[in-house]
Design a protein around this nucleic acid. Structure first.
Length: 570
RNA sequence: CCCCCUGUAGCUCAACGGAUAGAGCAGCGCUCUUCUAAGGCGUUGAUAGGGGUUCGAUUCCUCUCGGGGGGACCA
């Protein structure tokens, strides 16, 4: 990566000039304003205190020795003490040319070679249909997995399905009382509709009657103890839900999950953990329950086992950590809603007290809530937007636009699907994952401006040029003078890997999304101001074709990382 | 009561402690005899308030005032 190279060059130059400078904290970055060059560093300002000189003076001194580097065509000091670099164009073009030899591997690095990272996301609940609230975890997790893969990591994705817990007591109670059976034709015709209705009704009853809650909990306790009938019904619910999960994941275009280890799969490990918690005096008994007092951490009480003997979510998560610890993953990433932070802190402390290695190797990749303009989504309010209806609407709107703009297009249906999905995913991924998102149809399904379709469209236009150009032209021996815009675009394409690196470093897909949008803006400006096919100068034409080809490649690969398909035409 | 997040343009969002705080939408004015106008160009417009740390603060600390979330033997 160029940025790394520049870092080393700058550091060496500083050491040569000023002797032992220790390990100064400084950055090499792409300046916001392209007039400041392709890269810049603040090392002079960082060194100012230790070597007691004016930053600008230091920058000027370093600039002198850096000018000899053949990587740069110019190096300049600028107030208050930046050093700005402009890349040598001959070098720039040949680097890009190298990258185009293997387009599928564009942006690929081996920084994660030999390391396996577990990513947990799209944690659906059994017997509930996925809705837009589940979207964030899915698309962020999927994007992380893709970026990890491109960076040379091995990635293991797991849905960690919510297939255990009191909710099944609630469902079982209602199911059995209504005299339903897993063989009923009525039930089989629309299992999710039946279960959802059941769940809502049953919750209402429980609200009104607290004895009923005890009954429901008893059903779950029975299930956990192995009651045959309850197990049978539960198994059926899990089976149909898993099928539904696969369908949703497929419709969302997610990479295949490596594991679907539901909470129930840790059932056998739970008693051991409880025993360990008592032996280590981490847990105490209280009213027949096993609890951990975390009031010193201001985290209240953590419950491992309830008074009725049933396990909790917390215990299941501890078992999950124990299991994953044995796998020796390089990192465990949990892509979860920020609202679960309290719970995860509890897990964190209990795990640490039990001697599990949680800290350092596991971390939350938390994201903000998705709400509706009128407030929170909830099943009870009945204002849930299902994932399927969102995807359907997206596809329909996209198709309408295509019919209007490009009625001749072949395979309209699949392009519409890609565009609709692209809009939805980009809407989510272009935002800082920690921010809350207000879901508005007109925003989530916008096709103009800073949107997924804008990037897809940019890609499709460039592709069109390449199709018409037919053969690629070889670069001439004498490289023509590039315009500032051409230079900037080529330089940005070369920093693709850095966008990936930065995006991964903070698990923030929006960094990559911003990079792509900015690239697309430059490319669109280029598109309208720099003719390619009609350019009479063969040398310029060749460079422009290369620019188009490399931009296309970068956009396509970047979109892939976001889980967005880039159609050839749209 | 305790904990966490958050306050940037009319709206929705960006900005590793750096240079003139960027986009998109909405508004206004241009732009399809040229490679896809889902585009391009121009224009109006913002860091809630007070202290502090720093050569430099939207960013870090602190207080005030707003907004949101969490703290169930739910998940």
């Amino acid at each position: 990566m160029i940025r790394e190279d520049i870092r080393k060059i700058v550091r060496n130059a500083a050491e040569k000039k000023f002797g032992n400078i220790g390990e100064p904290v400084f950055t090499v970055e792409v300046p916001e304003n392209s007039e400041h060059g392709d890269y810049s560093t603040n090392i002079a300002m960082a060194l100012a205190r230790t070597i007691k000189k004016n930053p600008l003076e230091i920058a000027a001194l370093l600039t002198e020795s850096l000018k000899a580097e053949k990587l740069f065509s110019s190096v300049a000091a600028a107030p208050p003490g930046f050093i700005n670099f402009r890349l040598n164009e001959v070098n720039l073009l040949s680097e890009i040319q190298k990258k185009l030899k293997n387009k599928k591997a564009f942006g690929k690095t081996n920084v994660g070679k030999g390391k396996t990272v577990l990513v947990e996301y799209f944690q659906l609940n059994i017997a509930k249909r996925p809705h837009v609230g589940h979207l964030r975890s899915a698309v962020i997790g999927d994007a992380l997995k893709r970026v990890l893969l491109l960076s040379g990591y091995k990635a293991v994705s797991d849905t960690h399905v919510g297939d255990w817990g009191t909710q099944f007591g609630i469902l079982l109670l209602g199911f059995k009382e209504a005299g339903m059976s897993v063989k009923d034709k009525k039930v089989l015709a629309d299992p999710f509709g039946v279960l959802e209705e059941l769940y809502i009704k049953e919750n209402e009853k429980i609200e009104a009657d607290s004895d009923r809650r005890e009954k429901a909990k008893l059903e779950f306790a029975k299930l956990e103890k192995g009651d045959r009938e309850n197990r049978k019904i539960w198994k059926w619910m899990v089976d149909i839900s898993m099928k539904n999960l696969e369908t949703s994941a497929h419709h969302l275009g997610l990479l295949k999950f490596d594991e679907h280890k539901g909470e129930s799969s840790y059932e056998k490990d739970m008693p051991g953990i409880v025993a360990l918690a008592f032996t280590k005096r981490v847990a105490i008994k209280k009213d027949g329950a096993a609890i951990v007092d975390l009031s010193d951490e201001k985290l209240d009480e953590a419950v491992l086992v309830k008074s009725d003997g049933a396990s909790t979510y917390l215990l299941r998560d501890l078992a999950t950590i124990q299991y994953r610890e044995k796998k020796k993953y390089f990192k465990n990433l949990y892509v979860v809603d920020v609202r679960q932070q309290h719970h995860f802190r509890q897990v964190h402390f209990v795990a640490a007290s039990l001697g599990f290695n949680f800290e350092g190797e596991s971390r939350l990749v938390e994201f903000g809530a998705m709400t509706l303009p009128e407030g929170k989504m909830s099943t009870r309010k009945g204002n849930i937007i299902s994932l399927e209806s969102l995807l359907k609407e997206a596809g329909e709107r996209a198709l309408k636009v295509i019919k209007e703009k490009n009625p001749e297009l072949k395979n309209m249906g699949s392009v519409a699907g890609a565009v609709g999905l692209g809009a939805i995913k980009y809407f989510d991924l272009s935002r800082n994952r920690k921010s809350d998102i207000v879901f508005r149809w007109e925003d989530a399904l916008a096709f103009e401006g800073n949107t997924g379709p804008y990037l897809q469209y940019t890609h499709a236009r460039l592709k069109s040029i390449l199709r018409k150009a037919k053969k690629t032209v070889k670069l001439p021996k004498n490289i023509p003078v590039l315009s500032d815009l051409e230079h900037e675009i080529l330089s940005r394409i070369l920093s693709f890997e850095e966008a990936i690196e930065d995006s991964l470093a903070s698990y923030a897909p929006n960094i990559l999304a911003n990079y792509l949008h900015s690239l697309a803006q430059n490319v669109n400006e280029f598109y309208h101001s720099h003719p390619v096919l009609n350019e009479p100068d063969e040398g310029k034409k060749a460079v422009r074709l290369m620019l188009v080809e490399s931009s296309t490649t970068a956009l396509k690969q970047g979109l892939w990382c976001l889980g967005i398909v880039a159609p050839e035409e749209m």
